[in-house]
C-alpha cells in the first residue's frame, strides 16, 4: 500500500508538470512610458569588446533604437512595404528579395544565392500580428512587445526599408556596454531577477507551468512598478533598454565561410549567464523564433 501511495504521489507530481500550452493565454497590458520611436546617440571612440576586454575603436558616430522594434512598428512597416512591392506574400509567408552571399565552400557552409527568402511565417501561432488579407495589425495585447518570428532577412529588410541597418556585432556591443568600463551587463556588474526578462524571472508575463516565458513590453525594466511587480531601471550607459534579455537580437555581420547570422543579448528563454554582453547565439538566417527580435541603427 505504501509503495502504491508513493507511486501515485510521484505520478501526480509528474502530471502537474504537464499542463497543456495555451499560447494565447491572456497577458496584462502595460504602458512602460518608453517611446519606441526614439534613438540613442553613440559617439565614436574606444570601448572594451568581448569577454576578455579587447580595446576596440569604432571611428564613427551612430544611433541605435532605444527599444526593440515592436509588433506595432512592424505591422505598420508591413503595410507600407507591401503597398510599395518591397515584400510580398507567398505560401503563407511574407518574403522578400536578398541578393545572396558570396560562397566560400567553408566547412558546413551552405550557399545563400540571390532570391526570395522568408521574412515572417503567417501561419505560426506565435506571430503576434494579424493579417486579414489586406492589412496587418498588431494584436492589441502585444502591440508594444518586441516583434518576434522575424528571420534575419526580415529584420534586415525592415531596417533597410527606412534607410537604416542592422547593427554589427561590435556596434551592438558598444551600445550595450558603453565606453567607460568592462561591465558584463548593460546596467552594471551583477544581475537580479528584475533587471531583465530571462527564464524564471517571475515577471507578470511568465507562467512556467504552462506556456513558459513570454516577452515583456519594450522598456519594461525601467524602474517602474507594474501591479506590484517592481522592476529595476536597467538601461545601457547610452540609455538603451532591453539590451539583455527579452529577445535575442539579430546583428548584421556576414562572415566568410559560414552562413550563420549572429544574435546578441540573451532572451526570455535563457539563464543569466547568456545575458552577458559578449555571449553570442547563432542561427541560419531563415530561422524564425518567438525568442528572436531586433533593433536598427543609423
Amino acid at each position: 500500500m505504501k509503495k502504491l501511495t508513493l507511486l501515485l504521489i510521484s505520478f501526480i507530481i509528474i502530471l502537474t508538470a504537464c499542463k497543456p500550452v495555451d499560447i494565447n493565454a491572456p497577458a496584462p497590458v502595460y504602458d512602460t512610458g518608453i517611446e519606441p520611436n526614439t534613438w540613442a546617440f553613440i559617439p565614436m571612440g574606444a570601448f572594451f569588446s568581448g569577454q576578455f576586454n579587447f580595446e576596440t575603436t569604432i571611428d564613427y558616430d551612430y544611433e541605435m533604437m532605444v527599444t526593440h522594434v515592436t509588433n506595432q512598428q512592424f505591422a505598420e512597416y508591413l503595410n507600407e512595404a507591401m503597398k510599395d512591392g518591397y515584400i510580398k506574400i507567398e505560401e503563407n509567408k511574407v518574403i522578400g528579395y536578398y541578393p545572396g552571399d558570396e560562397f566560400h565552400d567553408g566547412r558546413h557552409e551552405e550557399e545563400i544565392p540571390a532570391g526570395n527568402y522568408i521574412h515572417i511565417p503567417l501561419d505560426d501561432p506565435m506571430l503576434r500580428l494579424d493579417y486579414d488579407g489586406q492589412i496587418f495589425t498588431a494584436q492589441p495585447t502585444w502591440a508594444n512587445h518586441p516583434v518576434t518570428m522575424v528571420s534575419w532577412f526580415g529584420a534586415k529588410a525592415y531596417c533597410e526599408y527606412y534607410d537604416w541597418r542592422l547593427p554589427t556585432e561590435l556596434e551592438w556591443e558598444k551600445a550595450a556596454r558603453g565606453s567607460e568600463d568592462t561591465r558584463p551587463y548593460p546596467w552594471g556588474e551583477t544581475i537580479a531577477r528584475n533587471n531583465a526578462n530571462l527564464i524564471t524571472s517571475r515577471d507578470p508575463f511568465e507562467d512556467m507551468s504552462s506556456f513558459g516565458s513570454r516577452t515583456t513590453p519594450v522598456g519594461f525594466y525601467n524602474g517602474k512598478t507594474y501591479d506590484g511587480y517592481v522592476t529595476l531601471d536597467s538601461p545601457s550607459p547610452y540609455g538603451i533598454y532591453d539590451m539583455a534579455g527579452n529577445v535575442w537580437e539579430w546583428t548584421s555581420n556576414v562572415y566568410e565561410e559560414q552562413h550563420y547570422r549572429y544574435l546578441r543579448g540573451g532572451s526570455k528563454d535563457v539563464y543569466e549567464n547568456y545575458l552577458r554582453i559578449w555571449v553570442r547565439n547563432s542561427s541560419i538566417p531563415t530561422y524564425t523564433s518567438s525568442g528572436f527580435g531586433f533593433r536598427c541603427v543609423k
Partner: peptide, 18 residues
C-alpha cells in the same frame, strides 16, 4: 515546436531533478 515546448521542458527537468 518552440511555442509548445514548456510541458516537455517541465516534465524532463522534473524527472531529471528527481
Amino acid at each position: 515546436e518552440e511555442a509548445y515546448q514548456q510541458p516537455v521542458v517541465n516534465i524532463t527537468n522534473l524527472l531529471g531533478d528527481i
